[in-house]
């Protein structure tokens, strides 16, 4: 179980998260939905150890890992795919993958399997990161994090700005990744993609969780998302 307990996060003087408690259990697909600036990315970064917590705790399987630096969080099975993907532009697609291979012990997800998950990537393996299209970069970013064989995969708006055919490929991939045993936290701005995948939903607004619930109570949440600021 990966959790945040009562967490405050600041960017300088501005408070981005207020008393957030959030958890992901093994096997879950959890959706976090909110507008731009609501704190979705910040919450993911806090979960992944990529941002410090001013108050509260981060826990992994009961162990407090609040101060654990992000490279150690990575080694403990937490992987974050940021919204802007952050592909290494001066490396080829394949080198982006190889980097993670040399840093982590082998597991279910190998380069082979990852290329089977995203065949397009196999075709573009020798291309420089900087020359990949948005969809290819997104697939590469997910593939790259997968090679660490994470227990928890945190995806920040993985379908944003992508063509429907690629969105479908990514949805299928997320489903398979989850079936292979990786828990997923899926951040999006609306319900469209998450409702196809997630088994639990959270709504976030201005750094606070305003609603949480299972798919059968989603209608309550939809109103909240439309109505506006809480």
């Amino acid at each position: 179980m990966l959790e945040l307990r009562d967490v405050d996060v600041f960017y300088g003087k501005a408070q981005a998260l207020h008393g957030i408690s959030f958890s992901v259990a093994p096997g879950d697909i959890v959706a976090l939905i909110g507008r731009n600036g609501a704190g979705k990315s910040t919450l993911l970064r806090a979960l992944a150890g990529a941002h410090g917590l001013t108050r509260g705790e981060r826990r992994l399987d009961g162990d407090i890992i609040t101060r654990l630096p992000s490279y150690l969080c990575s080694r403990r099975g937490i992987a974050l795919v940021p919204e802007d993907r952050q592909i290494f532009s001066s490396l080829t697609a394949e080198e982006n993958l190889r980097l993670v291979e040399v840093l982590h012990p082998a597991g279910y997800w190998t380069r082979e399997r990852v290329y089977r998950l995203f065949p397009r990537l196999a075709e573009r393996r020798k291309a420089n990161g900087i020359s990949l299209s948005g969809g290819e970069q997104q697939m590469l970013a997910i593939a790259r994090s997968l090679l660490a064989n994470p227990h928890y995969l945190l995806l920040d708006e993985p379908t944003e700005g992508l063509a429907p055919i690629i969105v479908d490929a990514i949805i299928a991939a997320i489903s398979e990744i989850n079936q292979q045993g990786t828990a997923v936290v899926l951040v999006e701005q609306n319900f469209k993609v998450p409702q196809l995948l997630a088994n639990y939903f959270h709504l976030i607004d201005s750094g606070r969780l305003t609603w949480s619930g299972p798919p059968d109570r989603l209608d309550e949440a939809r109103d909240l998302l439309i109505v506006g600021r809480s």
């Binding site: 990529a50 490279y71 290494f88 980097l99 993670v100 790259r144």
Partner: peptide, 24 residues
């Protein structure tokens, strides 16, 4: 070399390299 790969990635984007497991 592997070391060179780690170096090139870290020079390109240290933050992301760290998130992937590099002790930057």
């Amino acid at each position: 070399t592997r070391l060179g790969l780690i170096l090139r990635a870290s020079s390109n984007n240290a933050g992301m390299a760290e998130m992937l497991g590099v002790e930057v």
